[in-house]
């Protein structure tokens, strides 16, 4: 039996051939080493993300999140829901908090769920994978399986917004969270602690609707990583990852910069440090190749 089991909420972007499919690949590899069993919530649906607000309204958004909770309670009783995507975690956690605090909302939500024969009992806990790693394992435990320390590689820990605010990771500050730096250190890498854009917004969904305004944010995030001597950026959020990696070529084209900064997930670093191959770590999913990590993976 696996050491720890969770009801897994991968989210839309982690699905096969979706924009963060390599995140899922590396999470699976990391969890195998840590003996964690993730069971997908059967037939889970989208959380609505933040940007769903305009058309979604309040109750429909909360109700679709509650559908996932009800499915988890029914099929995976007693297991915490774990999300890997920042937006999924936030959307779910926010919905859960509001339901738990407001009995009217709870009644209305269950009335909506009843239309599909479901019921939310408010038993489930909603957590982010990073919380699981830090709280259920801890840095010392995470260090034990390290086979290939990421020696000499400098990482800028880009935490972004939604894994950090409004909930964040217990014990961390909103302005200067340190857990990514600590994780990098745990894996034998070198955290760039002076990186000053770690909680800057990448534009989020507005990278699509307001590209110029968002690309200004992304430029700051990448430029500061270069200025502080980082070789790679590491993040816990799939939208941060995609925005900051994908638009570098656009910014180069428009603004004459020469950005070529790899942007990785914490789980990819862990997979490599735990002895995973390039493929296990999803490094073949990078648009900007993380050459130095590939070299470590091949060692």
């Amino acid at each position: 039996m696996a050491k720890k089991e969770y009801a897994f909420y991968p989210g839309c972007s982690s699905q096969l051939k979706a924009s963060a499919s390599n995140y899922l690949t590396s999470v699976n590899s990391m969890c195998k080493t840590l003996d964690v069993k993730l069971t997908e919530i059967p037939d889970w649906n989208c959380c609505g993300a933040s940007i769903g607000y305009a058309e979604g309204g309040e109750l429909p958004r909360i109700a679709i999140n509650a559908r996932n909770f009800a499915l988890a309670e029914t099929h995976l009783p007693g297991q915490d829901i774990v999300a890997t995507c920042a937006a999924c975690w936030l959307g779910a956690r926010e919905s859960k908090d509001r339901l738990d605090e407001n009995s009217v909302l709870m009644k209305e939500t269950n009335e909506a769920l009843a239309a599909a024969g479901l019921h939310y009992k408010a038993e489930v806990k909603v957590r982010h994978m990073v919380e699981v790693l830090i709280e259920d394992f801890g840095y010392d435990e995470l260090k034990k399986p390290v086979k290939k320390p990421l020696e000499g590689v400098k990482f800028a820990g880009y935490v972004g917004c939604q894994t950090n605010r409004p909930f964040g990771i217990a014990g961390e500050s909103f302005e200067n969270p340190k857990y990514l730096d600590k994780m990098v250190e745990t894996l034998g890498g070198e955290p760039v602690e002076s990186y000053d854009q770690k909680v800057t917004c990448c534009g989020g969904a507005l990278a699509f609707s307001e590209p110029d305004k968002s690309q200004k944010q992304i430029r700051d995030i990448v430029e500061s990583a270069y200025d502080h001597g980082a070789e790679m950026i590491v993040t816990p959020c799939p939208l941060c990852q995609a925005n900051v990696e994908v638009y570098q070529s656009e910014i180069n084209k428009k603004q004459g910069t020469k950005f070529n900064m790899p942007v990785l997930y914490y789980s990819q670093l862990m997979s490599v440090a735990y002895g995973g191959s390039m493929k296990d770590a999803g490094l073949d999913g990078q648009l900007i190749r993380a050459t130095r990590l590939e070299e470590i993976a091949k060692k």
Binding site: I51, G52, E55, A205, L206
Partner: peptide, 25 residues
Amino acid sequence: PTREFATMFWNNLAKKGRVNELKLT
């Protein structure tokens, strides 16, 4: 533009329960 995108996003996810990134783009 964000009003338009936000509407497209919700309609996209509401259709099949999960986001279709290609169709959204």
